[in-house]
């Protein structure tokens, strides 16, 4: 394949869609009518909307808590899986499952588990005497709804952390641990001084990915709450879809989904430099 053709393919599949996506956000493009360039007007417009400001707040709460939980629990789980365990395979299968089940379907199951009438979570809690009927209104109250979507995100994202970190642990040459053992480092010391530093490159990439995945999460909110109650669980992706595609205002939708783009791009840039320099 000639260089020119390869270049054409990259331009067609990557550069062109990317440039168009940026252009959408800078134009008054509607689904049915191509727009003209209007500069940053869309960004000003969305900032002027209370629903969008609420969405920014939601996104940071959602991503902040979910990524923190996934990082801590993921490393913890990876360390546990690294130990010799009986039923190792079953345990690994169990841990991997949430990532493998198609999200569009697994979130439906979670929706059913948080259903106002048939919630198995509430049923169990009520029968254990923890809460009084009818139990928490999971998807109808802002705090509960946010808890629910974060829970599902952690459930789904944890395997990614656990298994990638596990693979990182496995690639650390054994001698390093042995050296630490000889030095008499306890397990916490071993973790801090041997494991963590060596895992840094992997962790940095995994956290980076997870942050991006989490900020752009769509399915969970779309299936469970569609941004409700009263927009308290809307994320960038769900609001962008709602305004840009369902509503037809593609320009504003693009501005919403690209709102964090400069910030994320800066983070990516810094973090990637750091990883390469390390």
């Amino acid at each position: 394949m000639a260089v020119g053709q390869r270049l054409l393919l990259i331009v067609g599949l990557v550069a062109y869609p990317f440039a168009m996506a940026i252009y959408f956000s800078l134009s008054d493009y509607w689904v049915g009518s191509p727009g003209r360039f209007i500069g940053l007007q869309n960004f000003r417009d969305v900032l002027g909307n209370e629903i969008f400001r609420q969405t920014v707040q939601n996104s940071f709460v959602f991503a902040g808590i979910a990524v923190a939980l996934k990082t801590v629990l993921g490393i913890w789980l990876a360390m546990l899986l690294f130990r010799p365990l009986r039923f190792k395979r079953l345990v690994r299968a169990a841990v991997l499952l949430p990532w493998v089940i198609p999200t569009a379907l697994s979130t439906l199951a979670w929706g059913w588990m948080f259903d106002s009438l048939y919630s198995v979570v509430n049923w169990t809690a009520i029968h254990l005497g923890i809460v009084s009927p009818p139990g928490p209104n999971w998807l109808g109250m802002p705090a509960y709804a946010m808890t629910a979507v974060i829970t599902v995100n952690v459930w789904r994202g944890l395997p990614f952390f656990a298994i990638t970190v596990l693979a990182g642990l496995v690639s650390i040459p054994r001698e390093y641990y042995e050296a630490a053992e000889v030095d008499g480092a306890g397990s916490w010391g071993g973790f801090r001084h041997v494991t963590l530093p060596l895992l840094k490159p992997v962790l940095a990439v995994v956290v980076l990915f997870s942050t991006i995945f989490t900020f752009s999460d769509f399915n969970i909110v779309q299936v469970l709450t569609r941004g409700g109650p009263v927009n308290t669980t809307h994320l960038f992706a769900t609001l962008a879809y709602q305004v840009g595609l369902s509503g037809g205002n593609l320009g504003q939708g693009a501005a919403i989904s690209l709102f964090l783009f400069p910030m994320l791009a800066a983070i990516v840039f810094v973090q990637l430099r750091y990883i390469r320099r390390e």
């Binding site: 996506a21 991006i212 769509f218 992706a237 962008a240 879809y241 989904s257 994320l264």
Partner: peptide, 8 residues
């Protein structure tokens, strides 16, 4: 380029 979501 990966930062631009597929929905766009």
């Amino acid at each position: 380029t990966y930062l631009v979501p597929p929905t766009l």
